[in-house]
Simulated assay, not measured.
Amino acid sequence: MASNLETLVTVFGGSGFLGRNVVRALCRRDYRVRVAVRRPELAGYLQPSGKVGQVHTIQANLRYPASVEAAVRDSEVVINLVGILTEGRGQTFDAVQAKGAETVAKAASAVGARLIHVSAIGADAESPSRYAKAKAAGEAAVTAAMPSATIFRPSVMFGPEDQFTNRFASLARMSPVLPLIGAETKMQPVYVGDVATAIADAVDGKAKAGATYELGGPEVLTMREIIEAIVTIADRKPTLIPLPFGLARLNANFLQFAPGALKLTPDQVTLLERDNVVSDAAKTAGLTLEGLGIAADSLEAIAPQYLWRFRPQGQFQRKSA
């Protein structure tokens, strides 16, 4: 039986939040991993994910097809994880998540590689959100270029390096008041490690070709319930003030230029107007984490392992009543 070390997997976006988890999962299964990123000199931290020589980083940019074609050369599997939450300069939703996805799919098809494409729950060509529209356009382009591609749509992901739970815990540490946008919007937070496992399973050949999977955690929670869980774990007690979408969008016109955890764009507000949960159709078809045989971890089980750093007195502080 051939070793996985004979299989080259090229990962676009391997240096990001989901990417580093995917790279680790592939290394544990002994695949050779080529990580295609815009700035390979800044991705050296991926090397310890595997054995000596198992992880190799190269330069590629989805907006430049020649670099993508070079990156997929000799690959048996190609994984596209590239996505952006906010736009800047040439990095627009359309350029990265629609045209970029098409570029990767065409390059993978040209070398006869299998393709795994990561989109997002909420991808919808009719969505008022430009992010969601671009995700849908990317899916359509991928399917047109390679009908056998496997597509994964995760809900909002959480984990040690996320920009979700860490963001709200950071805000709760800074302010006694926390605006709550989309308080009753439903989400299905999914642990990034479970999404990485699903992708690695697809590389193993356990996922259906040409299928679209929706990946959510074990619980459907409102935005209010999620924020309450985060601040409880961080042992912070901010006052949560629901903010109407209209007022939130007005504030976002200014906050889109803010740094770090304070940044909020009008498009992100628009996304929060719709629920972000696994569909009944995906459940019925078995196109979920459960369908892949993965028991999803909950926010309550994982988040305390890293959000302790936001507690007033650190990791060993006893939780206040």
Rank of each mutant, 00 (worst) to 15 (best):
L8H: 08
V9K: 04
G13K: 08
L18T: 14
N21R: 14
R28F: 06
V33S: 02
R34V: 00
R38Y: 01
P40M: 07
L62K: 07
N80T: 11
V82W: 11
T86C: 03
G90H: 11
Q91C: 03
Q91W: 04
A95I: 08
V96Y: 07
A101N: 09
A108K: 13
S109V: 04
L115R: 03
L115P: 12
L115D: 14
L115W: 11
A125R: 15
S127H: 03
K133S: 01
A134W: 00
K135N: 04
A136V: 04
A137I: 01
G138T: 02
P147C: 02
S148T: 15
S148R: 12
I151P: 00
P160D: 13
F164G: 09
R167E: 05
R173Y: 12
S175M: 12
G182D: 02
T185L: 02
K186T: 09
P189M: 05
A198M: 10
D201K: 15
A202I: 13
V203M: 08
D204T: 00
T212I: 15
G216S: 10
G216E: 07
G217D: 12
E219Y: 12
E228D: 15
I230Q: 07
D235I: 02
K237C: 00
P238K: 03
L243R: 03
P244I: 01
L247N: 09
N251R: 09
L255K: 08
A261H: 12
A261D: 15
K263P: 02
A282G: 08
T284I: 12
L287P: 00
A296V: 12
D297G: 02
S298R: 05
R309A: 11
Q315A: 14
K319Q: 15
S320N: 14
